[in-house]
Simulated scan of single mutants.
Amino acid sequence: MSKGKVIIGMSGGVDSSTAAYLLKEEGYEVIGVTMGMWQEPGETEGCGNLSAVKDASRVAEKLGIEFHVLDFRKEFRENVVDYFINSYERGMTPNPCIACNRHVKWAALLDYANKIGADYIATGHYARIEKHPVTGRYSIKASVTAAKDQTYALYRLTQEQLERTLMPVGFYEKDEIRKIAANIDDFIAKKSDSQDICFIPDGDYGAFLERERGKNHCPGNFVDMEGNVLGQHKGLIYYTVGQRKGLGIAFGKPMYVYGLDVDKNEVILCDNETLFSRTVYANQINCMSVPEFTDGMRFRGKIRYSHKMADCTVRMVGEDLLECTFDEPQRAITPGQALVLYDGEYVAGGGTILGAKLPIHQRKNEAE
Results as ranks from 00 to 15, higher is better:
A99R: 02
R77S: 01
I140S: 03
I98F: 02
L154M: 12
L70P: 04
Q39E: 12
F171C: 02
L162P: 07
E89H: 11
V69K: 05
S143Y: 07
L63K: 03
V169M: 04
N86V: 12
D119R: 04
N101F: 02
G117T: 01
V134Q: 13
K62I: 09
L70N: 04
A142M: 12
I140E: 05
Y88L: 08
V169G: 04
H132R: 10
K174C: 05
E163W: 05
L162K: 08
N95P: 01
G42C: 12
Y138P: 03
H132W: 09
W106F: 15
P41Q: 13
E176G: 07
A118V: 10
I129N: 01
G91Q: 12
K141V: 15
P94D: 09
N86Y: 11
V81F: 00
C47Y: 09
E66R: 13
R73G: 11
R156G: 00
M167F: 01
K62H: 08
A118C: 13
P168A: 05
G48T: 06
P41I: 14
R58T: 05
N114W: 08
E40I: 10
I177M: 00
R77D: 00
N79Q: 11
T123E: 11
V144M: 07
C100K: 05
R128F: 05
A118I: 11
S57C: 04
T145V: 00
G91W: 14
G117V: 01
R128N: 07
S87N: 13
L109H: 00
T123I: 08
I98L: 04
R128H: 00
V144F: 00
S87P: 08
T158G: 10
E61W: 02
E160F: 05
K141H: 12
A108V: 07
A118T: 10
A56Q: 01
H103I: 01
D119G: 06
D55A: 15
P96M: 06
M167S: 13
R128E: 10
I116D: 11
E61R: 14
H125C: 09
Y112D: 08
I129E: 00
L50F: 06
Y112L: 14
A113R: 08
Y126K: 01
Y88Q: 05
G117Y: 04
V59H: 00
T145D: 15
L157Y: 00
K54R: 15
K174S: 07
E160W: 06
G136W: 08
A60Y: 04
R77Q: 06
E176L: 08
A127S: 08
E45M: 02
F76P: 02
E176F: 06
E61V: 03
G64Y: 10
L154Q: 08
V80L: 10
E130M: 07
R164Y: 02
G170V: 04
E89V: 11
L110T: 04
G117E: 03
Y138C: 07
P94A: 10
Q159R: 11
Q150M: 13
I177N: 03
R77I: 05
D119N: 15
G42N: 12
K74P: 03
E173P: 01
F76E: 02
N114D: 15
Y83K: 14
C97N: 08
Q159N: 13
P41M: 14
D175A: 14
Y155P: 09
T135N: 12
Y138L: 09
A52P: 02
V169D: 00
Q39C: 13
